[in-house]
Amino acid sequence: MLSIKNLNVSIQGKQILRDFNLEIKAGEIHAIMGPNGTGKSTLASTLAGKEEYEVTSGEVIFNAKNLFDMSADERAREGIFLAFQYPVEIPGVSTTNFMKAAVNAKRKHQGLEPMDAKDFLKLMREKMALVEMNKEFSSRSVNEGFSGGEKKRNEIFQMAMLEPALCLLDETDSGLDIDALRIVANGVNKLRDANRSFLVITHYQRLLNYIVPDYVHVMYGGKIVKSGGKELALKLEEQGYDWIKEENSELV
């Protein structure tokens, strides 16, 4: 589904990703861990198409298409979804209107008619229940005045609405209390299926108790320095990142 080859990315002239490589197949869950400032969020933002990230070399193929030929919104319509680390507040735009625009943009891309109003509201209710969101949120402005946990639940709700092929979760667990974490993880788990892939970026192993990954990668200095199964996350939890830093001191 996703193939990243020798990806190099800079921001404001400073190189962040260095010869980054990763293959994700349909239905797989990959977790990327690593200390702060190693390029985890840069990877997610680059894949989603944020413009200030400059791709200096390398390629990314998503479902047989060159990702860098597509704008951010095209990528989303093709099935990439980024759950933001810091979801943005949009005063004056209700969650309902926002989702209506997004769902219908995707439907148009697929050659479908805009969704019937009744069906749309039914879909909203169903997907909000998935992350235990109160229905009053649908009429409130997107993320405005939401708590940290509510914002993250809103991200997963949007993901459920848009049914993407590839979900990028950028530190979705950071700042969440255990109840919110459980709700968010449950929401994600309900969306798992054989055709949908996940790239879960996290600083902490805790999330991976709830969203159990097929592969765990450790990033350091802009590349993956270690890969393994879910047991690698446990080792990191016990031993911290110091041994990774020591083994890869030449990278920074």
């Binding site: 989603a48 944020k50 951010a72 919104d73 989303a76 926002f98 625009a101 997004a102 848009l162």
Partner: peptide
């Protein structure tokens, strides 16, 4: 960017 990341 947030709106575009949702396909708009």
């Amino acid at each position: 960017f947030y709106l575009r990341a949702r396909g708009i």
